[in-house]
Write a protein that binds this DNA or RNA. Structure first.
Lengths: 195, 195
DNA sequence: TATATAAAAATGAATGTTCATTCTTTTTTT
DNA sequence: AAAAAAAGAATGAACATTCATTTTTATATA
């Protein structure tokens, strides 16, 4: 147990260092030696926990993605109405992107570059299923526009990624009121017009 | 003249190769030797046209960004109404992202990673000014929501980037009708409610 | 116009560095 | 005292950049 405990601490430190360094420098400009140094570990030790550099970054991606979706669906219950369910999920997504932006930026970089291998990307996408299921239900109930989930996601969720990056760059600051307004925009863009 | 002509061809070939290779492998996983080979040039020749690798990618970014904004504003005139002006610009943005996606993907990667240096990023942003000016005019005329340009951009333009990536991954295909619908969504999200 | 020569452009090979990964030894745990 | 974990140093490959030559182009002269 002591052994396992210790190992998990080191593993976590490695994942944390990877996120921070990759965020600031990108995958290929982050040497294993720096990751090791930041995690206070010898470079050789990394290879006791991960097969190689690609494996390290794949596993980091999957962990952060899982953390993201756990966070996002934490308050959501399938028994909720489509409208309430969407609001619940959307607001958690916003919170995550704006408060946990170290992790959110890491995901954005993974999703916009050829850094993560295809199987790991697929693995990461799975976790978003409850939102897609909610939308399908909404379409059946005639509450949500009958269009591709990609379009719904583009309108309702992807603007948050842009705002996150803008905020991270210090260009401007989102407040409560703006988030509420952004939410209204998101809902308007996916609900059927009559609602 | 013949000399200059030849040089420009080589320079263009280098820029083209850079875009293609960086798109597929990322900046740091693209060796100068491969860029040279794809451009049918010796590695040493690159250094006659660019200071170093960073300079090559910075200049590539600025050129692609300029091409993008030229394309985007090609049909736009300041004399247009806010509504027409926005539609004109938006549809060109959509066209560019969906038709020229090699270049659009390159820009997305540059904007989501620490690949380009700060001065070059700033240089690239400048070109978008006419759209921001149009929005300011719209706010004064009471046609556009009186919110930060970042929010307007997030709602109205950033979804297109997401759709572009989804389309590139072959996940789905945008048709004329969906683009029209996406445009309506974009306009709804930034116009003042009464309009 | 044809030839010689200087300047510019281009090249392939060489250089030195950085880095992922492995090896051997030491330390810690059981 | 055996096994597991960790360490630092060593290895070898990949790469950006430079160097020494060669090739091409432009210019001047006859």
């Amino acid at each position: 147990m002591a052994k396992l405990q210790k190992s998990i601490d080191k593993r976590n430190a490695l994942i944390k260092a990877t996120i921070e360094l990759v965020n600031n420098n990108g995958f290929h400009a982050t040497p294993m030696s720096k990751i090791a140094k930041m995690a206070k570990v010898s470079p050789a030790t990394i290879y006791l926990y991960f097969e190689n550099k690609q494996d390290l970054v794949n596993k980091t991606y999957i962990e952060v993605k899982a953390e993201y979706t756990d966070y996002v669906f934490a308050n959501y219950k399938e028994s909720m109405s489509v409208k309430t369910g969407f609001e619940t999920i959307w607001k958690r997504i916003a919170e995550f992107k704006l408060n946990e932006y170290e992790h959110a930026m890491f995901l954005a970089q993974c999703d916009n570059t050829p850094m993560i291998d295809e199987p790991s990307l697929k693995e990461g996408i799975k976790h978003l299923q409850p939102l897609l299921d909610l939308w399908e239900r909404g379409k059946q109930e005639g509450i949500i526009k009958p269009v591709s989930n990609y379009l719904l996601y583009a309108y309702a969720v992807s603007p948050l990624s842009f705002l996150m990056i803008a905020q991270k760059r210090g260009a401007f600051q989102l407040d409560k009121e703006q988030i509420e307004e952004a939410y209204q925009s998101a809902w308007s863009s996916i609900k059927k017009c009559e609602q």
